[in-house]
Design a binder for these strands. Structure first.
Lengths: 225, 225
DNA sequence: ACCTGAACACCGTTCAAGT
DNA sequence: ACCTGAACACCGTTCAAGT
């Protein structure tokens, strides 16, 4: 216990003076993200955060209204860090595919974020900029506003759901559960066990995105001009 | 504070004798679900649960290993309550559509569950039965094991992601954020505002499912026999 | 076997006080 | 203006004790 707290403190404050001058909202959020990444969402605690910052818990309240505000700030921080639309795929299908892949990557590298997504807000955040950029790309590809909105939402939902299903269980646990299920009661599960596990582990993510893109592109004559 | 605790106690124990005899794992989980539904995930507390059961917190530990076990139990409980595959659609597309609709319904009626999904396990749970049943239906429709697994995973991911995006923000908040976004910076968002909000509010869920089903059914010659 | 009481090591947050 | 100390009302969980 003592040891864990100590090494964590070392890790999060590495290279900084133990007594810093500023303590801004920005450094609070960055430290909070580091803690959440390392110990998970419930490992992030105002008191723990203060300790990592070398400060008293109450010092944090001078810069952030409360813990909820910090958690909301983390979502913004990650969205801002991953410039998911900043790449140079030429055709719009590849562009969408890469964008979703980058989103997925960001969510996986910061696993605590996905459970905070429900606290996020669009107004005045980087998320709105990402949304605008994706709609712009889709309009350029010939989608109507309605078609573009549908595509954005479906891909977003699929990506988030994919990550949720993926980090549900420890890496190889799920694979074992499927392959070792009693064949008499679960014949289909056993037969599809390895391919099921592949999907849950995210190995077929890109194929899923492409199928959804194609499915939505065809659906309804009104979605594309 | 006193008042809230009192009315909650009344609500959760309504119709039961204040001093019950058994206190089984089953009644603990049912009460826990009621609390989680009413106050959200962080409103569910061992001490609060004990209070609602008219018992000391430690009495609960005789029946459940710890809070984590209770939370995992809640996912099973909801999956078991909603018999999502029990309906009589004739063709497989409609069948999938209705199944996803029922899953979505269950998740929305118990909003705390979605954030507990990552704690769930397949082995020995009702979730495995649902999975088996869906794969069975897809095999019957001519899908290969691989194709069926892909379809299950994609629909599951989409459904979960859809609900996650939906309950992110309070009902009308998101709609306002989109329609009132500054037009100069976010022209596409403003233009698609109402249709975007419709999607986030889940009004186009069924259309999304159908498009994904069609997209995956076409994808790859190997997925169907 | 089943439940309770007291205790421990934590939480988020407020309020008054220091510099 | 920015930070601290002490306090309050909570947590999950363990351990020994009651019946």
């Amino acid at each position: 216990m003592e040891y864990t707290a100590y090494t964590s403190l070392m890790r999060y404050t590495a290279g900084k003076a133990r007594r810093r001058k500023p303590l801004s909202r920005a450094v609070i959020l960055r430290t909070a993200l580091a803690i959440a990444d390392a110990e998970g969402r419930e490992g992030l605690t105002v008191r723990r955060l203060a300790q990592a910052l070398g400060v008293t818990p109450m010092a944090i309240y001078r810069h952030c209204r409360n813990k909820d505000a910090i958690e909301r700030g983390l979502v913004d921080l990650v969205v801002g860090d991953y410039d998911v639309t900043n790449h140079d795929e030429r055709n719009w299908r590849d562009w969408l595919c890469t964008t979703c892949g980058l989103m997925r990557r960001g969510l996986i590298e910061h696993p605590a974020i996905i459970s905070l997504l429900s606290k996020a807000t669009y107004a005045g955040s980087d998320a709105m900029t990402v949304l605008e950029r994706i709609l712009h790309e889709l309009r350029g590809a010939g989608f109507t506003p309605r078609g573009a909105a549908g595509m954005f939402h479906a891909l977003m939902a699929y990506t988030i759901g994919s990550v949720t299903l993926g980090d549900s269980n420890a890496p190889r646990t799920l694979r074992r559960e499927f392959t070792r299920a009693p064949r008499a009661r679960y014949p289909q599960v056993v037969e599809a066990a390895t391919t099921l596990a592949d999907h849950f582990e995210g190995r077929c993510f890109e194929a899923g995105v492409r199928a959804i893109v194609d499915g939505l592109a065809e659906a309804g004559a009104a979605t594309r001009s």
